[in-house]
C-alpha cells in the first residue's frame, strides 16, 4: 500500500490531533456557533470549547462547514 504524500501528511495531522475523548459531528454542530462568534471577534477561547476546536482538526467535513460558516457570518461585522 502506498499513499499520496498529501494523504500521508493529512493522516499524520489527524493522528497527532487525535484525543482519547472527542465530540462527534452532531455535538460539534450544536456547539460550533459559539466558537465561530468568538473566533470572528478575536476573543480567547474558553477551555470548554477546546473539544469543538479539536474536532475540526480531525474531521474534514466539519472543517469545510466551519469555513463556510465563517464566510456566512462575514456580513455581520
Amino acid at each position: 500500500m502506498k499513499l499520496k504524500p498529501d494523504t500521508l501528511r493529512q493522516l499524520a495531522r489527524v493522528i497527532v490531533a487525535t484525543r482519547p475523548d472527542e465530540i462527534d459531528c452532531d455535538e460539534w454542530l450544536a456547539r460550533v456557533g459559539r466558537l465561530a462568534e468568538l473566533e470572528r471577534a478575536g476573543a480567547p477561547l474558553p477551555p470548554d470549547l477546546t473539544p469543538v476546536r479539536q474536532h475540526i482538526e480531525v474531521c474534514p467535513e466539519c472543517v469545510e462547514e466551519f469555513k463556510g460558516l465563517l464566510l456566512a457570518l462575514e456580513d455581520d461585522a
Binding site: A30, R31, V32, G33, A36, E37, E61, E65, G68, L69
Partner: peptide, 26 residues
C-alpha cells in the same frame, strides 16, 4: 430543542444551513 442558546440563533441556524447545503453538494 438542540439549540443551546450560547450563540445567536442565526449563527446556529446558519451552521445548520451550511451543513445541509454542503452535504447535498457532496
Amino acid at each position: 430543542d438542540s439549540f443551546r442558546g450560547d450563540c445567536r440563533f442565526m449563527t446556529w441556524a446558519a451552521a445548520v444551513a451550511v451543513r445541509a447545503a454542503l452535504s447535498a453538494l457532496r
